[in-house]
Amino acid sequence: MKLSAPVFQLKRRAKLLVRKNNVPLHEALDQIAREEGFARWSLLSSRITADTLSNTMLSRLNDGDLLLVAGRPGQGKTTMGLQLLLDAARDNRMAVFFTLESTEEQARKHIGSLDESHHLTSSLEIVTSNEISADYIIRHLSGAGRGTVAVIDYLQILDQERSKPALSDQILALNDFARESGVILAFISQIDRSFDPAIRPLPDMRDIRLPNLVDLRLFNKACFLHNGEAQLRDIN
């Protein structure tokens, strides 16, 4: 969705509303966002952030990378992951979305909102099986070409069922698979509630929520998002 004006001008309009109507800034920003077709400002800013960073993210990923896309709810991490898949499809790569969180209909709708041309949406594969785990992903991507991009939604839910291996074992297996196959695996990840943006504007590896032990050194890149800002970092 194209904005009526650059983001800095929209923020200026919000500040004018604050002075004119004597309302808090967050309410003014949400009002501007609704005028632009978004439910709230965080959705507008996360969409713009995803569009901006995605232009460079794919080019900065190497075959076999393990990437974390992490942020608090509503900060655009799923949008970022789906945009990465669209960019991969645009580059004629195989692109797969494994989700334990969304239905296929929900995922298609989200992807469609990002694909303004509607030419790439159908080329993305969406997998919603309850059996999604490291073994399932490895079997599904067996034979995929180097540079294939897969997004897993999301890290912390992979071992929610007791029948599945421990999360640490699954990430280790996926790391080995990525290195051998050249498939790029991106994991959408939650951030711990203890993250305080008043102390640091963006979360980092210390803030990844880990209900179960995982060696985060297996990931070599991470993208952190908060309040319309995003940064892609090399971890190792």
Rank of each mutant, 00 (worst) to 15 (best):
P165G: 09
M1R: 15
V183D: 01
R162G: 12
H140M: 07
I126H: 02
D87P: 02
A88Y: 06
S42W: 04
F8R: 11
K15E: 15
A70Y: 04
A107Q: 01
D215W: 07
T121N: 04
E27T: 09
E27M: 11
G182D: 02
L86H: 07
N236G: 13
S123D: 08
F187R: 03
R19V: 05
L174N: 00
P165A: 07
L174W: 00
I137N: 02
D135S: 11
T128R: 05
I152D: 00
I188Q: 05
R60V: 05
R146F: 01
L68E: 02
A134W: 00
R12T: 14
N21W: 11
E180T: 09
V183N: 02
L29K: 08
S45F: 03
L167K: 03
L53I: 10
G71D: 13
F187L: 08
K2A: 13
V23R: 14
I184N: 02
I191D: 07
L124K: 00
M205F: 06
A88D: 10
D215P: 05
P73Q: 15
N227C: 04
D135M: 04
M57S: 07
Y154A: 01
N22R: 15
D176W: 00
L3H: 10
G182M: 02
Q190S: 15
N175R: 14
L167W: 01
Q83V: 01
T79N: 08
G76S: 13
T148W: 06
R206P: 03
L225W: 07
Q160S: 14
I184V: 12
I208K: 05
M205W: 04
V183I: 08
A173R: 02
P197L: 12
L213N: 15
N236V: 10
D51Q: 15
G71E: 12
H119S: 11
P165M: 09
T99R: 06
N22T: 08
K109M: 08
I132A: 03
R179F: 05
S142R: 15
N212S: 15
D30Q: 12
Y136I: 03
I191M: 11
Q190D: 14
D176C: 00
R206D: 15
G182C: 07
L68D: 04
S45M: 10
S42T: 13
T78R: 13
D30Y: 07
W41E: 05
L86R: 08
A50N: 07
E131P: 03
N55F: 08
E180S: 11
M1K: 14
I235Q: 13
G143K: 12
D153M: 05
A230V: 10
